[in-house]
């Protein structure tokens, strides 16, 4: 792909693209590979369940740390303090070393320790991650009705549902691909404002004329024009069983 890179002009702007002849099939393969990675790996329900649990672990730990009931890794503590000061003007220079220090080893160490914590929510979430007891997806006809029912259930249990009833949308993950994950409607005056939010892959012929990949590739246009959005609701299996009656 690198050998096929070209510069060309698109609407009076210089853009980076690919050579139309040499790069067309390479670009198709590239986009398709990314598409399969998202659907089968990044957005696999076990992967997403684990990632959501990790989010909730640190949300709970941060909450407890503010109350003085647990300690965070020192580098994470520094970063969060900076974020609290001014989220629009974080000094990257000051926190980049802290960020780099937060290795997998540090995180797993704390997750292990927290799995023995006296806070039941924190210890439970950490244990689920360690022993791969992930949340399960639920498939219902009416998610809105289900949520109301689930809210009442968690209220009766005395558990905050924000840690156990999790809604996942593909774009909420840290993997974002505006080329294949954005919905683009191709009709109406607002087409441009939709398309502006998506990246475009340009291909230039020998005269410098530009084509956009999804306009000349049938398979890529199918991916781009069909919305890829994986929406799921996750909750612990034992709660799912109680709510759905087996």
């Amino acid at each position: 792909m690198i050998n096929c890179l070209r510069l060309g002009e698109v609407n009076d702007d210089i853009e980076v693209g690919l050579d139309l002849n040499k790069g067309f099939s390479i670009a198709e393969d590239f986009v398709m590979a990314r598409y399969y990675m998202y659907v089968n790996v990044y957005f696999h329900k076990a992967t997403r369940s684990a990632e959501l649990i990790i989010d909730k672990i640190f949300e709970r730990a941060s909450e407890l740390a503010k109350e003085g009931k647990t300690e965070l890794p020192e580098d994470l503590h520094v970063i969060l303090k900076e974020l609290e000061k001014d989220t629009t003007n974080i000094s990257l220079k000051d926190t980049v070393n802290n960020y780099l220090n937060l290795t997998d080893n540090t995180m797993w160490h704390y997750i292990w320790i927290w799995s023995k914590h006296s806070d039941q929510i924190l210890s439970d979430l950490c244990a689920r991650l360690i022993y791969r007891n992930f949340f399960k997806t639920v498939s219902v006809d009416d998610i809105l009705d289900f949520y109301i029912k689930a809210m009442d259930y968690y209220r009766e249990l005395g558990i905050p549902d924000k840690y156990y009833l999790l809604r996942d949308q593909a774009s909420s993950s840290s993997y974002k691909d505006p080329y294949i994950l954005q919905k683009t409607k191709s009709e109406g005056k607002e087409e441009e404002s939709e398309r502006e939010a998506s990246e475009q892959i340009f291909l230039f012929d020998e005269k410098g004329n530009v084509k956009e990949l999804s306009n000349i590739s049938g398979i890529i246009s199918q991916i781009r024009n069909k919305k890829i959005l994986i929406e799921r609701v996750f909750l612990p299996n034992e709660h799912k069983t109680k709510l759905l009656g087996g």
Binding site: Q169, E192, E196
Partner: peptide, 11 residues
């Protein structure tokens, strides 16, 4: 192009 935009909002 049209100013601040959130794809998550549209979703």
């Amino acid at each position: 192009h049209y100013g601040p935009y959130s794809a998550e909002l549209q979703q």
